[in-house]
Design a protein around this nucleic acid. Structure first.
Lengths: 339, 339
DNA sequence: TATCAACACGAAACCGTTTTCGCTTCATGT
DNA sequence: ACATGAAGCGAAAACGGTTTCGTGTTGATA
């Protein structure tokens, strides 16, 4: 069905090399032959086989993206950023989901590491961060496959990294709430093994301490995972009827918390304020709309892709040098706090 | 860095064929040699090169997914379904975004069609459906590359298809609203060139007619695209202060409409009811929570992947036979209508 | 002792390209 | 008349595997 160089060569009674060169407009080949070959190729819609070229060049023009999850808005926007940038540079994106599982992460990487891709863009699964086992990443980098880590990163691996300043984001958000006179600010987060949650918790605490309010550990709810735990949040608010502001590490926790508050008859933001992380549809279309720390996922994706492709295409000569790009979070003010 | 058969052969002073066979536990090779080779391979962590195998087998074990968009929940869940199923069968998923553009869709397909993938799973871009130009699909199927179309499909192409019964979904939703005594039911949709919008509009009209209410075309708002058009919706409600229920073709239109209603002081569902399409986070965590026609995206993804892989791996002998799987939509009742 | 199967392995083709190198052929200069 | 060089093309290796077929050795058998 698909035509190859060999087919053209046979039909036109020339050698495969001649066809190959003719199609590349090589100086070596006469005008006549080139025209003949090119016309034939166009007629039969010849397109070189990517796999053969990959084998020859040892370059696939594929990049592997391994992320914990795809339904949450943040990761979705990152993929979009990666895809747009990568596509513009002629790369395809292979997406693998670890679903927060260490084993799946390992398996996915092994599948891809055997020639299918030129490099990885990853965000670590929670299980991986919890175990602290990064051997699969080490193996891959030792094989010379470039890796870019974004958002959920680790210091144990030497590679390029792209993050937002989560601590700063949480700090500013908390500060904003304090400025508006909030005194009893709760934090709904996840266990500290998630690098981002840890940083956000630190920012939250720092803001409280800097303003002289001090940290009340009981006002911090640490859920086991990023998965929604409606009961956990409900119980927390039962136990803490006095909180006047809530910072959440994602938008779902925040929007759900807002609903609980509304169901108890509280006015937002008059009685209680909310700020979340991730600037997705939920935040924008919630009622009231949610103030968030925007993570600029698409930008992160773009930058990750750029760093990876630059490394992939770069000369191997220069000794390895890794950089960490830190993006500044932005506070998007909406109706869940005072304007 | 990566070890090859040739390396092993040289080190162990045997031929490449022997190594290949030994690693596959061929009967041809003696116990001694097999053990020697296998031990060496394990020690140096030999893994066969996927690209070489692809070239030989003319099978990549990659499937190409071309969709208009990735940030909307529906497509996200479809990808997840595809990825899960495909991964379980040893396939990788290459995701390409057409971003509703005909040209991008064509370019993406051409990139992938030259050997990078074994088959396509696609949902048509709105521009493609508008133009009605499906030559890129024809070319691909004529090359013998299997295609599965989901959700946004066309009858012009012979291939496997997976859809939900959009007309039935809209019919049932409308019927539900009518049962609850609604008389002036609006529809917020997009232009009819989108296959799904067209079907949903038909279901809506059919329900109105069947119940004797009759269709008032002025109560149908056709937005140009699936993109949010806040002004358009706002104007529509200004012009139609009397509607007592709204059916929307996605969840964003619905949730935004709910907010407009709330801002005007209307009570949901006492004064006005809302039903959307797509059972995502927005619907679930909106306030009030939104009743929706669930599209079962993950299931669609799974089925699409299964149909595609079955076709890819199936014997070419049997004459081509294509099927269309129609999933039944489910009405998920929440607080935006009476229970 | 000649024959023959079984055994263990290697050579080579093949998948579809790219690319280096060498071989003709012909025109040019001396 | 003959070396020289360029023009135009082909052979072959290479990328990393799989697989078919052939071949040399061994031991058993007639």
């Amino acid at each position: 069905m698909k035509i190859t160089l060999k087919d053209i060569a046979r039909e036109l009674d020339v050698s495969i090399s001649t066809v190959s060169k003719a199609l590349k407009n090589s100086e070596e080949i006469s005008r006549d032959t080139k025209e003949k070959v090119q016309a034939f190729a166009k007629l039969y819609n010849y397109k070189p086989n990517n796999i053969a070229i990959s084998l020859k060049n040892k370059r696939t023009k594929n990049i592997g993206v391994v992320i914990p999850d795809i339904v949450h808005h943040f990761f979705t926007t990152v993929i979009r950023g990666i895809e747009k940038y990568a596509n513009a540079r002629g790369y395809n994106v292979i997406v693998c989901l670890s679903e927060e599982s260490f084993d799946k992460e390992v398996i996915n990487m092994e599948m891809l590491a055997n020639g299918s891709i030129d490099g990885f863009i990853m965000s670590l699964s929670s299980e991986t961060q919890q175990k602290g086992d990064y051997n699969h990443l080490k193996e891959v980098t030792e094989q010379g496959i470039p890796v870019v880590l974004f958002d959920r990163i680790t210091n144990e691996i030497d590679c390029d990294k792209v993050i937002i300043d989560d601590e700063l984001g949480a700090y500013r958000a908390t500060q904003k709430l304090i400025e508006q006179g909030r005194k009893r600010i709760a934090l709904i987060t996840t266990d500290d093994y998630l690098s981002v949650s840890k940083a956000r918790t630190m920012g939250y605490k720092k803001a409280l301490i800097d303003s002289g309010l001090g940290v009340d550990e009981s006002r911090i709810l640490k859920l086991p995972t990023m998965e929604m735990d409606e009961e956990g949040i409900k119980d927390f608010f039962e136990d803490h009827p006095d909180v006047d502001a809530v910072l959440c590490v994602n938008e779902i926790f925040a929007v759900y918390s807002m609903r609980l508050a509304q169901e108890k008859g509280l006015k937002i933001p008059e009685d209680i304020s909310f700020i979340g992380f991730t600037d997705g549809f939920l935040s924008k279309y919630a009622y009231p709309s949610l103030t968030v720390v925007a993570q600029h996922g698409e930008k992160m994706g773009e930058i990750s892709a750029q760093m990876l492709i630059d490394k992939v295409e770069g000369e191997k000569e220069e000794e390895e040098t890794f950089q960490t790009r830190t993006l500044e979070p932005t506070l998007v003010i909406r109706d869940s706090i005072f304007h």
